[in-house]
Amino acid sequence: MHSYIYPCPLRWADADANGHVNNALFLRFMEEARTRMFREVLADDEAGRRRNAFVVSRASVEYRAPLHYREDPVDVHVRVAHRRAVSFELAYEIRDANQLYAEGTIAIAAYNLDTGRPRRLTDTELAFLDRYTES
């Protein structure tokens, strides 16, 4: 098992008057990492993306240390903590080499936007998730 790592750039507007990155943005960092991680498994056409969509069903973040604005990106590590036939949970660490800033989890359900109902994960999606699943 290995993590997907996304070097997430920080933006000047992310910081408050004290130079701390706003805690609400950590969910955005997690989303950015997830969308880049899943690019290879998403359908190329709009109809396929609608039939084989994913929706977030739960998100949580535990803040470990303040993240100050800087020029260098912060790394967002993503791994699959659990998976089932229709859903999975991603575990995140927002960190650099010296500091863990936050840990989070996001539960995701496979979903068909056309029918408005959950769906089973495809074999391709399951194989993709297995590459990042904890042993």
Rank of each mutant, 00 (worst) to 15 (best):
N98I: 11
L100R: 11
V76K: 02
G48A: 07
E46M: 14
L67C: 01
Y63M: 09
Y63N: 07
R84A: 08
A65L: 09
A59E: 06
A43P: 03
P73Q: 10
L100N: 04
A59T: 14
R70T: 05
R51M: 11
R70C: 03
V78M: 02
R49C: 04
A47Y: 04
D72P: 06
D45Q: 07
P73N: 11
A81P: 01
E40D: 12
R83I: 02
R49F: 00
R79Y: 06
H77I: 01
V41F: 00
V80M: 02
R70N: 00
S87A: 15
V41A: 05
E46I: 15
Y101F: 15
S87C: 14
A85W: 01
R58C: 05
Q99D: 11
A91C: 10
Y63D: 08
E62Q: 00
S60G: 10
R51C: 10
V86F: 06
V86P: 04
F54Y: 04
R70S: 05
R70W: 03
V86R: 12
R39I: 01
L42F: 12
L100M: 12
A102M: 07
E40W: 03
E71K: 14
V78G: 00
A85M: 06
N98M: 15
A85S: 12
F54R: 02
R70F: 04
N98Q: 15
V61S: 04
V56L: 12
R84K: 10
E93P: 10
R83D: 00
R64E: 13
D72V: 04
V86N: 10
D44K: 11
R83P: 00
R95V: 08
E40R: 07
R83S: 02
